[in-house]
Nucleic acid binder design. Structure first.
Length: 597
RNA sequence: GCAGCUGUAGCUCAACUGGAUAGAGCGUCGCACUACGGAUGCGAAGGUUUGGGGUUCGACUCCCUACAGCUGCACCA
């Protein structure tokens, strides 16, 4: 019988896109062969510190403990039972108290590089993880009639990246912009719109004018009860379908959405649907009915509320699903939304990329929906609050302008582009004007996105212009620069990245820098899986940063443009794969790249 | 008052949710190279992971406790 070569093992199987998963499965098999209780044994293979190897299995220790065995002896037994092809593809050692370390042989590394040479191949490899699942991602979700400010940045940026990651991993993703286009504020706004619309200001910046009008209406209502009454009348008229008020409301919505779109275009944000609160206006009646029928909701102080007796806090803190005046609130529409997402989109999961301050609301919402669906025999989708912290200024307080206003997202992004422009003008004097403009946009907005994404989303983060655009350390510019440098090599050598005719001549990887870079490249799959499973893009950022670092080290030590065609070919292959992972990864984060900068 | 989140090097952040000697960048100090793009690379110093207990082969991670900061708690979304 012909023994499979390492090349066949690593290169031949699509499942081996994720090598950690491959070794995990191999250990599972070995466990069964050795007579272990495979159901109880989780190998826990993950990427390792390079000084130990490429991957490490941690699962032997807890299993050995449960079954009262010696961890090291058990580990040795498992290693011996691994298939010959796995043992041929890597050096395997048992270390410390009972870790199993896998270090890929150079030939196996090279084989992986040959197999995964295009975005399509990466995508095919990754897409097995979430195939068949439908995920609704609820993100951005600003209110109409208001300009987006810095507080809206994180949801848009993080939500977009998570959507891309899920889609790349094979999920069917519905990106839903759940805009706040319904509510009591429209009474005051319409009242002021009818009396004090400044057409010149409206033509200049309609959203700013709406925002001003709302303040006018709000102040007037506060000052004069008669005005408040009139505003409430306007709201009632809107809700009962009055043609004039409906037309105004529609205009507000349309103007708002097209203004949001300008920002989304800059950030690479794209929605599949924009179903705002108004869409669910006629769907809340069913929610009240069902919740009451199944005994979850009851009247309290005139309002319809849900308590959760088993919960330490929500046994007393009500979830208010209908106000005492009979009107819906955001709990009502959020519940109707979950139902719609299940019935219409057949969502297996719905995730909410919202500020962590909404934690209580989300918990109550999810608990209520879960019980409601169980009682009515519906499948409960996975519901998750993808929470994130606040953007802080350098004083540690929420980021504001000098006079205490919210910073407009539009202004923030244009300042980022301006700052990037100053840098481009300084560093890249030889590039033509229109190219410099594009580079400034990509670097400027990319820096804002990356600064947000590269940090663990659950904590607040400090916004610092200098750190963000300073181009050193874990920043967008460092990664974009690495991309530009790789591209420059191909330009100079008049080669095309991933040219298989060239790569066929490659000799085996040899230098420490080549091997180290190749090892990092193969970890791409793991980084994507980690970021996707945890819904935390910063894991991917960290990986890309380390990859760019490995490349820079390689680049400084190993010249690509050498005379020996076999050496040149293998280094070109490394450059091509580095480029592929950087570009694919940056795209998954929602960033664009440039050829030169 | 109740609850949630956070506390890691001078500063800004990681640490794959219990794994091996807690890692980066900035700043500081030192080094390399007329470079296939210097928006570079290599190195040094810098830590009682807020304090105190506990759980176990193993704890930044889990539990208890104290302290500090942020946030949320009935009709705004």
């Amino acid at each position: 019988m012909r023994r499979p070569s390492p090349q066949r093992l690593i290169g031949g199987m699509h499942a081996s896109f994720n090598l950690a998963a491959l070794f995990d499965a191999a250990l599972k098999t070995a466990a069964t062969a050795t007579g272990l209780d495979a159901a109880d044994f989780a190998p826990e293979v993950r990427t390792a510190d390079p000084k130990h190897g490429d991957f490490q299995a941690n699962g032997v220790l807890p299993y050995a403990k449960r079954t009262k065995q010696t961890p090291r002896a058990l580990a040795e037994k498992l290693v011996a039972a691994l298939p010959a092809d796995v043992r041929e593809a890597c050096a395997i050692t048992v270390a410390g108290p009972g870790f199993i370390n896998f270090t890929l042989q150079p030939a196996a590394l090279q084989s992986w590089l040959r197999t995964f040479s295009t975005r399509e191949q990466l995508s095919a490899g990754a897409a097995t993880a979430y195939s068949g699942q439908t995920w609704v991602v609820d993100y951005s979700s600003p209110n109409t009639a208001k300009q987006m400010h810095v507080g809206h940045l994180r949801s848009a940026v993080i939500g977009e990246s998570i959507s891309r990651l899920l889609a790349f991993s094979g999920a069917k993703v519905i990106r839903d912009n759940h805009i706040g286009d319904w509510g009591t504020q429209f009474g005051k706004l319409i009242w002021a719109y009818k009396r004090q619309l400044d057409t010149a200001a409206f033509a200049e910046d309609p959203l700013a004018e709406f925002e001003r009008l709302y303040k006018v209406g709000n102040n007037a209502s506060d000052a004069d009860p008669a005005v408040l009454k009139e505003a409430q009348q306007e709201l009632v008229k809107l809700q009962s379908g009055d043609p004039e008020n409906t037309a105004i409301w529609k205009e507000i919505g349309e103007v708002s959405v097209s203004s949001f779109q300008q920002i989304y275009d800059l950030l690479g944000v794209r929605f599949d649907t924009t179903l705002g609160e108004s869409f669910y206006n006629d769907k809340v009646g069913r929610v009240y009915q069902e919740l009451t029928d199944c005994g979850l909701a009851s009247e309290s102080q005139g309002a319809l509320v849900v308590f959760h007796p088993e919960h330490p806090r929500f046994k007393d803190q009500p979830f208010l699903v209908r106000k005492s005046d009979g009107a819906a609130n955001y709990a009502s529409t959020d519940l109707a939304t979950i139902l719609y997402r299940r019935e219409h989109f057949h969502a297996d999961a719905a995730i909410y990329v919202i500020d962590s301050r909404q934690g209580d609301h989300c918990q109550q919402l999810f608990l209520t929906a879960q019980k409601w669906f169980e009682k009515t025999g519906r499948k409960v989708p996975r519901l998750e609050h993808v929470a994130f912290g606040t953007v802080l200024g350098e004083d540690g307080r929420p980021l504001k302008t000098r006079n205490g206003d919210n910073i407009k997202l539009k202004d923030l992004l244009s300042e980022a582009v301006e700052r990037a422009r100053r840098l481009v003008d300084e560093k890249s004097t030889d590039l033509p004007e229109d190219e410099r403009r594009v580079i400034s946009e990509v670097v400027g907005t990319g820096s804002v996105q990356y600064a947000d994404l590269s940090q663990n989303r659950s904590s607040d983060y400090l916004f610092s212009w200098d750190k963000m655009i300073s181009l050193e350390g874990n920043t967008a510019a460092y990664l974009l620069y690495a991309v530009a440098r790789v591209r420059s090599i191909f330009r100079k050598l008049e080669a095309v990245p991933g040219d298989s005719a060239v790569e066929a001549d490659a000799s085996p990887l040899e230098t420490p820098e080549e091997l180290s870079l190749a090892r990092k490249v193969t970890k791409f799959s793991d980084a994507v899986a980690l970021a996707t499973n945890q819904l935390r893009p910063h894991f991917l950022c960290l990986y890309l940063y380390e990859l760019a670092g490995e490349f820079s080290t390689f680049y400084a030590a190993n010249k690509v443009a050498v005379d020996d065609p076999a050496v040149r070919a293998r280094r070109l292959m490394l450059c091509a794969r580095t480029l592929l992972m950087l570009e694919t990864g940056l795209d998954l984060l929602g960033l664009r790249t440039v050829n030169r900068m």
